[in-house]
Amino acid sequence: NDEAKKEAEKLWKNNKSEDEIKERLERAGISPDEAEQWLQELR
């Protein structure tokens, strides 16, 4: 999970869309709710 979150953070810094980041997190096995929460922390 931490690995996926690091990846999400990297994508965020590269200005990827939130949808793309969420999709990537969900593919890594993170629930949509958790993915949404993680994005809010990044904002």
Score class of each variant (00 low, 15 high):
20 E>F: 11
30 I>S: 02
30 I>Y: 07
12 W>Q: 14
38 W>R: 00
18 E>F: 11
34 E>N: 03
5 K>M: 06
42 L>W: 09
1 N>W: 15
24 R>N: 08
12 W>G: 14
9 E>P: 00
39 L>Y: 03
23 E>V: 09
10 K>I: 12
29 G>D: 04
23 E>F: 00
35 A>S: 06
20 E>V: 05
16 K>P: 04
5 K>R: 11
22 K>H: 03
30 I>H: 02
34 E>D: 08
7 E>P: 01
42 L>D: 00
22 K>R: 12
37 Q>P: 00
21 I>T: 02
2 D>H: 12
21 I>S: 00
42 L>Q: 03
26 E>P: 00
22 K>D: 00
36 E>R: 02
25 L>M: 09
18 E>H: 09
19 D>L: 10
16 K>G: 13
28 A>K: 06
1 N>C: 15
23 E>Y: 00
24 R>V: 15
22 K>V: 05
15 N>E: 06
42 L>G: 00
29 G>W: 00
32 P>A: 11
40 Q>C: 12
37 Q>C: 11
25 L>A: 03
34 E>H: 04
21 I>R: 04
42 L>P: 01
3 E>C: 15
12 W>P: 14
13 K>V: 10
1 N>G: 10
8 A>E: 01
22 K>F: 07
5 K>L: 07
12 W>A: 14
16 K>H: 14
15 N>L: 06
18 E>K: 04
2 D>W: 13
8 A>D: 04
16 K>M: 14
33 D>F: 09
24 R>Q: 12
4 A>K: 06
29 G>N: 05
32 P>C: 04
28 A>I: 13
1 N>S: 12
19 D>W: 10
8 A>C: 15
35 A>K: 01
20 E>N: 03
21 I>M: 02
3 E>K: 10
7 E>N: 05
7 E>D: 06
42 L>N: 01
35 A>E: 00
27 R>D: 07
18 E>T: 07
34 E>Y: 04
8 A>N: 03
40 Q>V: 08
1 N>R: 15
40 Q>S: 10
29 G>A: 01
21 I>Q: 03
5 K>H: 05
41 E>H: 11
11 L>H: 08
36 E>A: 07
18 E>W: 14
39 L>M: 07
7 E>K: 03
31 S>H: 09
7 E>H: 06
5 K>E: 01
19 D>T: 11
21 I>F: 04
20 E>P: 02
19 D>R: 11
31 S>T: 08
31 S>G: 08
9 E>Y: 09
2 D>V: 12
6 K>Q: 07
8 A>M: 09
36 E>Y: 04
8 A>Q: 00
26 E>K: 11
26 E>F: 13
10 K>Y: 10
42 L>M: 08
12 W>Y: 13
37 Q>M: 10
20 E>A: 04
43 R>E: 06
25 L>K: 00
3 E>A: 12
37 Q>L: 10
10 K>W: 12
31 S>A: 09
22 K>S: 00
5 K>A: 01
7 E>I: 12
17 S>W: 04
25 L>F: 01
11 L>M: 15
27 R>K: 10
9 E>F: 05
12 W>T: 14
13 K>L: 13
19 D>M: 11
9 E>L: 08
3 E>W: 14
8 A>G: 02
1 N>I: 14
2 D>E: 12
26 E>H: 13
12 W>I: 14
34 E>V: 14
11 L>P: 00
40 Q>K: 10
35 A>V: 14
17 S>D: 06
26 E>V: 14
30 I>R: 01
6 K>I: 07
2 D>F: 12
22 K>Q: 03
22 K>M: 11
3 E>V: 11
15 N>F: 04
6 K>S: 06
29 G>F: 01
37 Q>G: 06
41 E>W: 10
32 P>F: 09
39 L>E: 02
34 E>T: 13
22 K>C: 06
11 L>R: 03
23 E>R: 11
16 K>W: 14
7 E>S: 05
24 R>C: 15
11 L>A: 05
32 P>S: 11
26 E>M: 14
27 R>F: 07
3 E>Y: 10
33 D>S: 10
28 A>H: 10
10 K>F: 12
9 E>Q: 05
36 E>F: 05
16 K>S: 12
42 L>Y: 03
16 K>I: 15
37 Q>S: 10
31 S>C: 13
30 I>V: 12
32 P>Y: 07
17 S>F: 04
21 I>H: 01
35 A>D: 01
2 D>P: 08
3 E>G: 08
31 S>K: 10
16 K>C: 15
37 Q>T: 05
17 S>R: 01
23 E>T: 09
17 S>A: 05
28 A>L: 15
6 K>F: 05
33 D>N: 10
22 K>I: 10
23 E>I: 08
34 E>W: 05
9 E>T: 05
9 E>H: 06
4 A>D: 03
40 Q>D: 11
15 N>K: 10
7 E>A: 10
25 L>V: 03
8 A>P: 01
15 N>R: 05
37 Q>A: 12
9 E>D: 04
19 D>V: 10
4 A>C: 15
27 R>Q: 12
27 R>M: 11
1 N>A: 14
3 E>M: 11
36 E>P: 02
13 K>G: 13
28 A>F: 14
21 I>C: 03
37 Q>W: 06
34 E>Q: 13
28 A>P: 01
16 K>A: 15
43 R>Q: 06
6 K>R: 13
31 S>P: 12
20 E>L: 05
34 E>L: 15
39 L>R: 00
36 E>G: 02
10 K>Q: 12
11 L>K: 04
22 K>Y: 05
35 A>T: 06
31 S>R: 08
17 S>T: 10
14 N>Q: 15
6 K>A: 11
33 D>E: 13
30 I>G: 02
34 E>P: 02
38 W>I: 14
27 R>E: 07
15 N>H: 11
26 E>D: 05
30 I>E: 00
38 W>G: 02
28 A>W: 15
33 D>V: 11
7 E>L: 15
12 W>D: 14
30 I>W: 07
39 L>W: 04
11 L>Y: 06
28 A>D: 06
40 Q>Y: 01
29 G>P: 01
28 A>R: 11
8 A>R: 02
30 I>C: 13
